[in-house]
Design a protein around this nucleic acid. Sequence first.
DNA 1: ATAATATAACTAATACTATTAGTTATGGAG
DNA 2: CTCCATAACTAATAGTATTAGTTATATTAT
Lengths: 200, 200
Amino acid sequence: MARKGLNTDRIVEVAAELIAERGFDQFSLRELADRLGVKTASLYNHISSLSELTSNIGQIAFERMAGQLYSGTEDVLPFDTLYHIAIGYRKFAKQNPELYKTIVKIPSTGSSGLIEKGQSLVHNLYPVLEACGLSEDDIIHFSRTIRSAMHGFVTLEEAGFFGTAVDADESYSYMVKALIQPLKTELGRSFLYNIKCKGS
Amino acid sequence: MARKGLNTDRIVEVAAELIAERGFDQFSLRELADRLGVKTASLYNHISSLSELTSNIGQIAFERMAGQLYSGTEDVLPFDTLYHIAIGYRKFAKQNPELYKTIVKIPSTGSSGLIEKGQSLVHNLYPVLEACGLSEDDIIHFSRTIRSAMHGFVTLEEAGFFGTAVDADESYSYMVKALIQPLKTELGRSFLYNIKCKGS
DNA sequence: ATAATATAACTAATACTATTAGTTATGGAG
DNA sequence: CTCCATAACTAATAGTATTAGTTATATTAT
């Protein structure tokens, strides 16, 4: 009964480790407790439920992603930040498929912490988009667009919805450029504004 | 012990109904069996496992979506098919959130039936894209791009990742046009080809 | 029409799951 | 050194999917 010095952070950390190793679908509190050298019920002194724990794991997944996305981002030319984020996003998802799956499969509790961390992933886009002369609303629209595209792509790819006939790397590159390229030229931006001014 | 005339199709149908009503996370074989007036174990005469059942539900979700997407698509001008599919996709996802969630949360078995039905959702795009003069590869790239964008958008929106400050309808409209509009003009298409010819 | 066979639905049991209540022992604060 | 909070425990509950084995029914062949 000696105390193991357990705390919430350590539990979340080891849980993430376990999910990364064995897969989200295989994860259970029993296995987690085993690895922590403790009985299952003891976890409840530090967490309130499995779904809360899952949400916390999703949050640290986002945090790690953000860390990886923004490391060495200072050297990079402002505009290339867009590409940097887009490429890094999929890279992380491919390197940590089970962790990313956790985000996808989180029960719909609408955890505000998770949502904030998810949104902050593309925060570095904003100054660049401002510099392009996009309005506040357009910045939101574009941000949602590229997040949707990135998230949708890695999700569909991981789930096997893309065939193998055509290289997925190329498709991703195509998609990212189709979204970003127009921002780079006066011509493309006028295109965007045109879109904005037209009715639905 | 009188036979209830049960079969796999009916089970899947009622399961989908149950998920639509009570939510994917609340779904269980017990509740399903109850509604079918049968004991849980009896279901196994018709299905082989829960995950197989879930995959089947995902398939009929895709089928219904395709049905809704392509109903009255003959009247529509060829090019507007693109918009028609994009708008219909999100419309279905919003009308059947729990059913769509099923697709998202399906265990990663890589069911080939599911994958085919998912891919066929955008099949009607192909002739239109061909008519635009896109190469075979570009058609695949574009198809993956718009599927990613649509799927990502409805998933993130449903999960609450978009704030309420800016209307999501507008964002979706923005996204769809940003992807499709370039195909409509010689200028935009040359833009696309340009993208294709450049290295990554 | 009757007998044989396949199988739908059943009961009962297994092995898991998360979660809660109540107990014991430990580490730190006063 | 004592008190108190609480970490870790044991034991139990209610739920899950799944399997094995039994019984009755419906269909098929004779």
